[in-house]
Design a protein around this nucleic acid. Structure first.
Length: 867
DNA sequence: CGGATAGTAC
C-alpha cells in the first residue's frame, strides 16, 4: 500500500478531522461489491425500513403521496407536499426519494431546500440521509457541498467514493482524487472496477508511474486482474506514462481482449510515436476476426498519418467504405487528417470537397492541411468560404488560420482574422492570443504583438517565449533581453526561452549574458537539447569566442545539420576559410546532406578568405551533386567572390547572365568589389542598377559615396549628398560597443559623452603619433584622400571602434582579449590602428563589424586585407 | 473527429 501518513498534507480536507461523530466502520463483508455500479445510485439507497413509521399514521399518508409523485417524476408536486408537510411526519425514505429526484433533475435549489428540512430533523435522520444528500450535491455539480456532507458521514459506500474521485478528476484536480483513493485504501473501503478505472486515469494524468504500479499490484491482489475494464484502464495508464512494454505485457497475457483493448493498443502505440507497432496490432486484430469499430478506424488512420504510409491509409480508406464507415463524419474528418499528414493534399481535398456535410472539424482539418503544406492562400480562402457557408470557426480553426497567415507573412489577412477573433471574444483564450502574437511577430509587426501581449490577463510561458523569440527574430535584441529580464520576475524560463534569447545575445555580442544563459542551462541540466546547443555555439561564434564555440561543438555528441552549418559559418566569419571547408567536408562524410543554407555558409566562408577556386567548386557541387538550384543569396556570394578577387568584368558578366533576375544584394556585392579595386566607372553603372531596385537603401549610397571620395571625386560626392537629401534619407549612426563585466559601453559617432574621454583621447593620440613615427602607414590611397580636401566630405565614421578599443585596453588587464562590436563595417583607418595596437600592447583584439570578424594579433589581421 | 501556439544556421 502506498498510503502513508506523510501523504496527508496538513490543512487538507480530512475525514478524520471534520467532526466528532464520524465513525469509520472497517468493512467486514467478505463478498465484495465488485459489480456495484457507480452509475446506479439506487442500489445504495438506505433500506426504507431503517426508521420506524410514526404512530397514528393517517390513511392518506403524505409519505406515500410524495413517493408516488417521485415515482412519476413530478418534482414540483413532490416538493410542494414536502414543503407543506409536518416535518416530523416525513420518513427517511421519503427524503431519499425526493433527493434522488432532485439529483435526476439536477435541481440544486430544490435539493438544498430538502437539505434544510433534513437539518431541522434529529441527528439520526441527518446521519442516515447523508449519503443520498452527498449524492444529490455531486449530481447537481456542487462538489464543494457534496464533499462537505461526505466528510461528515460514516462512509463505506464505494459508489460515493468513486463519484467523488471522478468529479475531482473532471475538474482536473487529480491530486485530490489520488488523495481520496489513498484514504479509501487506508480505511479499507472495498474498491471496485470503477475505482480502479478512475484512479488509473488520474495517475496517468499525473504520470505517477510508481503509484500506478502499486495500484496494479493491489488490484491483482483483490482479484481484478481478470476484469477487462480494469485491465484496459491499466493498459491505457501504462501507455500514457510511456511504459509501452508494460502495456504490451498486459495485452499479451489477456485471454479475452475486447475491441476497446485492441483500440487502446493501437492508439497507445501511436501516441508513443510507435505507430508502426500500432499498425502491426491492427493487422493482428483483423486476423482475429474481432469486429472493427469506428474508434479502431480512427485510431489506425491516426497511426497511418504518423507513419506517413499513404498506401496503408488508402487501403484502409477502401476497407472503411466497404464497412460503411464513410458516412460517419468523424471518420471522414480523420481521413482528411490522414491524407494531409501523409502529404497527399489532393487526396484530402478530394474527400473534403465531396463531403455531404462539412463540419467545423472537417474545415479545420483541411485548413491545417493546407497550412502545413505551405498553401497558405488556399487555407485563407477556405477560412472565408466556411464563414460564407455559415460554419462558425472556433478557436481550433482560428489558430490554424493564424498559423497560415504567419507562414505567409500576410499581415492584412492576419489582421482580418484578428478582427473576427475580437468580434467573437476568442481573444480571451490564451492559445488564440499566443497564435495572434506569433502571427504578428512573423509578419514583422512587433508593436501589434506587444499590444496583445500587454493586454493578456493571463500569460503562459508560450506567450513570453513568443514575444522574446519575436524580438530576436525581428532584430530587436535589446527588447528581447529586456523582456527576458521581466519574465524572470514572474516565471522560470524554460529551454525554449533560452533558445529564443541566445540569438539576441549573439547579435549584441553580449558574451557575458550569453555565458549566464549557458550556466543556467548547465545548472538545470538543459544543455543537451540540440536546438539550444546550436544556439549556444552560434552565440559563442558571434561573440567572437570561436575557441569556446569549437570546444562546445566538439563536445556535442549529436551534431545535426545546423550544428555543422553554425561552425562552417563561424569559421568563415572569422576568416578561417580552410577550416570551414574542412568542416563542410567532414559534415558530408558524416552523412549529412547539405541544404541551401549550408551552401550560403560555405560560399560566404570562401569569399571571406578569398578562396575563389574553392568557391566555384562548391557552387558546382551544389548544382550538380546536390541538385539545388542557386538562389539570389548564392549568386550574391559568387559575385562577391569574383569581385573581391579582382575579376570585376567577369563578375559583371556573371550577373548579366544569371538565370534569375539579380536583386540589389547581388549588385551590391559587385559594388563592394568596385570599391576594393577602385573601379569608379563600373561602380557608377552598377549603382544605377541598384538605385532602380532599392532607391531608399542608405547602405548603397554610403558605399558609392566612399568610392567617389576615395577617387577624390568631390563633385560627385556632393551630388550624391543632394540626392540623398532629396529622398529624405538618413544615415544609420555609426556606433561601436564593448562589454565589460556584463555592461555595455557604447560609442556613437558624433557623440562625445563617452566615459573617461580625456584618457581615451590621449591614448588614441599617442598611438597615432607613434604609428607615424614608426613608419606605420596605412594604405597610401586612403592616406591621400584623408588629406586636405575631404575631412568634411567623407561620410564620417567617427572612429568609434578605436575609442572602444582604447577603453578596452584601459579597462582590462594586459593579455586579456579585447572584444569590440561595430554596427557598420570597420573603417580602414581604425583597422590599421588595431593592427598596430595588437602588436604594441600585446593584446589580442577581436572586432566584429557588420560583415565579419577581424582578429588582430601581433600586428596583423585575420581578414588579410579583405575588409 | 480537428488545431497545436514558442526555439537553432546565411
Amino acid at each position: 500500500m502506498w498510503v502513508s501518513p506523510q501523504h496527508h498534507c496538513p490543512g487538507q480536507t480530512s475525514i478524520t478531522s471534520q467532526n466528532g461523530f464520524v465513525s469509520f466502520p472497517k468493512s467486514s463483508t467478505t463478498s465484495r461489491a465488485i459489480s456495484s455500479n457507480m452509475g446506479n445510485p439506487h442500489t445504495t439507497l438506505p433500506p426504507s425500513g431503517s426508521f420506524k413509521k410514526p404512530i397514528n399514521q393517517p390513511i392518506t399518508d403524505c409519505n406515500t403521496q410524495i413517493r408516488k409523485f417521485c415515482e412519476v417524476g413530478n418534482l414540483k408536486m413532490a416538493m410542494d407536499l414536502v414543503c407543506n408537510a409536518q416535518k416530523s411526519e416525513l420518513e427517511l425514505a421519503t427524503y431519499c426519494s425526493v433527493l434522488q429526484l432532485c439529483a435526476d433533475f439536477k435541481s440544486l435549489d430544490e435539493g438544498r431546500k430538502v437539505h434544510s428540512f433534513i437539518d431541522s430533523c434529529g441527528i439520526e435522520m441527518q446521519n442516515a440521509s447523508a449519503p443520498k444528500l452527498a449524492f444529490m450535491y455531486l449530481s447537481c455539480g456542487d462538489l464543494r457541498e457534496g464533499r462537505r456532507v461526505f466528510d461528515r458521514m460514516a462512509n463505506e459506500k464505494v459508489f460515493l467514493w468513486n463519484m467523488l474521485l471522478s468529479e475531482y478528476a473532471k475538474i482536473g484536480n487529480f491530486e485530490e482524487s489520488i488523495m481520496l483513493y489513498e484514504r479509501m485504501v487506508e480505511f479499507e473501503v472495498e474498491a471496485n472496477s470503477y475505482t480502479f478505472s478512475c484512479i488509473l486515469k488520474c495517475l496517468a494524468a499525473k504520470k505517477s508511474v510508481a503509484k500506478g504500479e502499486r495500484v496494479h499490484g493491489y488490484l491483482l491482489k483483490l482479484g481484478f486482474g481478470a476484469y477487462n475494464t480494469v485491465v484496459n484502464s491499466l493498459i491505457a495508464f501504462y501507455f500514457k506514462c510511456g511504459r509501452t512494454e508494460s502495456a504490451r505485457k498486459l495485452f499479451d497475457e489477456m485471454c479475452d481482449r475486447d475491441v476497446i483493448t485492441w483500440n487502446s493498443m493501437i492508439s497507445g502505440y501511436t501516441a508513443n510515436s510507435l505507430a508502426e507497432k500500432g499498425v502491426e496490432v491492427f493487422i493482428d486484430m483483423l486476423s482475429t476476426g474481432i469486429r472493427v469499430d469506428l474508434a479502431t478506424i480512427v485510431s489506425i488512420l491516426a497511426a497511418c498519418a504518423n507513419v506517413g504510409v499513404i498506401s496503408l491509409g488508402r487501403s484502409l480508406h477502401a476497407y472503411a467504405i466497404k464497412a460503411g464507415f464513410n458516412k460517419e463524419i468523424t471518420f471522414n474528418n480523420t481521413l482528411i487528417g490522414m491524407y494531409t499528414n501523409c502529404g497527399d493534399i489532393d487526396g484530402a481535398s478530394c474527400i473534403f470537397y465531396n463531403l455531404g456535410e462539412r463540419s467545423v472539424v472537417s474545415c479545420t482539418s483541411m485548413i491545417a492541411g493546407y497550412a502545413r503544406d505551405g498553401l497558405s492562400d488556399k487555407a485563407i480562402a477556405l477560412f472565408h468560404e466556411m464563414k460564407m457557408e455559415g460554419i462558425k470557426p472556433d478557436i481550433f480553426s482560428v489558430t490554424s488560420i493564424l498559423h497560415a497567415c504567419a507562414c505567409n507573412g500576410s499581415l492584412e489577412d492576419g489582421k482580418e482574422v484578428h478582427n473576427y477573433i475580437r468580434e467573437n471574444n476568442m481573444d480571451l483564450d490564451v492559445s488564440v492570443s499566443n497564435a495572434l502574437m506569433d502571427m504578428y511577430a512573423k509578419c514583422g509587426s512587433m508593436e501589434d504583438a506587444l499590444s496583445i501581449f500587454s493586454q493578456m490577463p493571463i500569460k503562459d510561458i508560450v506567450s513570453w517565449n513568443t514575444m522574446i523569440g519575436g524580438y530576436s527574430k525581428n532584430s530587436m535584441p535589446n527588447e528581447a533581453l529586456h523582456l527576458f529580464g521581466a519574465m524572470q520576475q514572474e516565471l522560470k524560463p524554460d529551454i525554449v526561452t533560452l533558445t529564443c534569447v541566445l540569438p539576441s545575445c549573439a547579435s549584441l555580442a553580449a558574451l557575458d549574458r550569453g555565458r549566464e544563459v549557458h550556466a543556467h542551462l548547465l545548472r538545470n541540466g538543459l544543455a543537451f537539447d540540440n536546438y539550444v546547443v546550436n544556439a549556444l555555439i552560434d552565440m559563442y561564434v558571434k561573440c567572437g569566442a570561436l575557441v569556446l564555440a569549437r570546444s562546445l561543438f566538439d563536445k556535442t555528441p549529436v551534431k545535426d545539420l545546423v550544428s555543422w552549418v553554425v561552425m562552417v559559418a563561424g569559421y568563415g566569419m572569422h576568416g578561417f576559410g580552410r577550416e570551414a571547408i574542412a568542416a563542410f567536408k567532414k559534415m558530408r562524410k558524416a552523412g549529412i546532406v547539405p541544404d541551401e543554407v549550408s551552401f550560403i555558409s560555405i560560399l560566404h566562408a570562401c569569399s571571406h578568405s578569398g578562396l575563389l577556386h574553392e568557391g566555384w567548386r562548391f557552387f558546382d557541387i551544389m548544382r550538380n551533386d546536390c541538385n539545388i538550384k542557386p538562389k539570389l543569396e548564392h549568386y550574391a556570394c559568387m559575385v562577391d567572390l569574383l569581385a573581391r578577387s579582382g575579376k570585376l568584368s567577369k563578375a559583371y558578366r556573371f550577373v548579366e547572365t544569371m538565370p534569375i533576375e539579380p536583386d540589389a544584394s547581388v549588385w551590391g556585392a559587385l559594388l563592394c568589389g568596385c570599391r576594393i579595386h577602385h573601379d569608379v566607372k563600373l561602380a557608377e553603372k552598377v549603382a544605377e542598377n541598384i538605385f532602380k531596385l532599392e532607391p531608399d537603401n542608405m547602405r548603397y549610397y554610403v558605399l558609392i559615396a566612399t568610392i567617389y571620395a576615395e577617387a577624390e571625386k568631390w563633385e560627385e560626392v556632393n551630388k550624391l549628398k543632394e540626392r540623398i537629401g532629396r529622398r529624405g534619407l538618413r544615415k544609420n549612426p555609426c556606433c561601436s560597443w564593448i562589454e565589460i563585466k556584463g555592461k555595455h559601453h557604447i560609442f556613437v559617432a558624433g557623440d562625445n559623452s563617452y566615459p573617461q574621454p580625456k584618457k581615451i583621447d590621449f591614448l588614441i593620440k599617442e598611438w597615432s603619433t607613434k604609428m607615424k613615427a614608426e613608419g606605420y602607414f596605412p594604405n597610401l590611397r586612403y592616406a591621400l584622400t584623408k588629406g586636405e580636401h575631404m575631412p568634411k566630405e567623407t561620410p564620417r565614421c567617427g572612429h568609434t571602434e578605436r575609442r572602444a578599443m582604447a577603453f578596452g585596453i584601459m579597462s582590462f588587464p594586459p593579455g586579456k582579449i579585447i572584444r569590440i562590436t561595430k554596427n557598420l563595417r570597420v573603417c580602414s583607418d581604425c583597422h590599421e590602428m588595431a593592427k598596430y595596437v595588437s602588436k604594441k600592447v600585446g593584446s589580442e583584439i577581436v572586432l566584429r563589424d557588420s560583415n565579419r570578424f577581424h582578429h588582430f594579433k601581433n600586428g596583423s589581421c585575420s581578414c588579410r586585407g579583405y575588409l
